[in-house]
Simulated scan of single mutants.
Amino acid sequence: MVKLSVNINKIALIRNSRLSNLPDIYEMAKIAILNGADSITVHPRPDLRHIRPCDVYRLSDITDSTELNIEGNPFEPENENYPGFMTLVHKAKPHQCTLVPDEINQLTSDHGWDLVRDKDTLRPIIKKLKSQGVRVSLFMDPGLEAIQYELAAHIGADRIELYTEEYAKAYGTQGQGEILKKYILAAEIAQSFGLEINAGHDLNLENISMLASSVDLKEVSIGHALIIDSLKYGLGNTVAKYREALA
């Protein structure tokens, strides 16, 4: 069974639109877990536009029965309100850390790592995370040359997370078959080097089943579409629907 990680950034974005603690991030995460979420994902950023450091620390206390996945750029520096990504991860002690090459003010993740360029700077970061017992996943594009996936394994990553926007855009079009093959091949190449496969970005109730039944995935991370669906169905029912789609 593919595990479902629920990204709650958008819930925090709604909370931050008012000077209150509603909706309560902690309570929303508990609802997701009670209805089948295997993991909670957060992506803190230095501008605190959604998830805040205090949210991350609080969430680390409720995931005994599931996992906490913190994603972000490990090179993000500290500021007066943000301790820096690596300090935040060190204090929160998540089960998994997904490293993403975001720019400081980037709207959302839109590309993976170039490991031919970035391997030497990522290697000590990955070593430090793994010494703390944190599983490491690297956000990666599909369709790369095999050397990129080989390098992911060589510098110590446990998993890669395939960036699925291209698949989501192609879903339902004549080109979906060829794009899907790209993801299947990328997963197979990565697995040949001992890596496990996660996936995320623009996955929803319509397109998730085909990907999950075609690619050998360990986990999908879903936020934007899942939170939109929860406006129609309620958060608990929506998480259950995604669990059913993955099955």
Rank of each mutant, 00 (worst) to 15 (best):
V2I: 07
L4A: 04
V6R: 01
I8D: 01
I8Y: 06
K10W: 10
I11C: 03
L13R: 15
N16L: 09
S17K: 14
S20L: 10
N21V: 12
L22V: 15
D24L: 12
I25K: 02
Y26E: 09
E27H: 15
M28P: 02
K30R: 12
I31S: 05
A32I: 08
A32V: 10
A32H: 04
I33T: 10
L34C: 12
L34I: 13
G36Q: 03
D38A: 03
P44H: 05
P44S: 06
P46C: 10
P46Y: 12
R49W: 06
R49K: 09
R52Y: 06
D55F: 02
Y57D: 08
Y57V: 12
R58W: 08
S60P: 04
T66Y: 00
E67W: 06
N69L: 07
F75G: 01
E78G: 09
E80P: 08
Y82L: 03
Y82F: 11
G84D: 05
M86A: 04
V89T: 11
K91F: 08
P94H: 07
H95D: 13
H95T: 12
C97G: 02
T98L: 08
T98Q: 07
L99H: 05
V100K: 01
D102M: 02
N105R: 13
L107G: 12
W113G: 00
R117I: 13
D118N: 11
D118S: 10
T121I: 14
L122K: 01
R123F: 06
P124T: 14
I125F: 03
Q132K: 10
R135I: 15
L138I: 09
F139K: 02
D141R: 04
E145A: 11
A146S: 14
A146E: 12
L151E: 01
H154M: 10
H154Y: 11
G156Y: 00
G156C: 04
R159I: 10
E161L: 08
E161N: 07
E161S: 07
L162K: 04
L162A: 02
T164A: 07
E166G: 11
E166I: 14
E166D: 14
A168C: 05
A170N: 03
Y171M: 01
Q174D: 15
G177F: 13
I179V: 14
K181P: 01
Y183W: 08
L185N: 12
A186Q: 02
A186N: 01
A187S: 13
A187C: 06
G200C: 03
H201L: 02
L203Q: 02
E206C: 10
E206H: 13
N207V: 08
I208S: 01
L211K: 03
A212R: 03
A212V: 07
S214Q: 04
D216V: 15
K218L: 09
E219Q: 10
V220T: 04
S221F: 06
I222P: 00
H224E: 11
I228W: 15
I228P: 05
L231T: 15
K232D: 10
K232T: 14
N237K: 14
T238E: 00
V239Q: 00
K241H: 11
R243A: 08
E244Y: 09
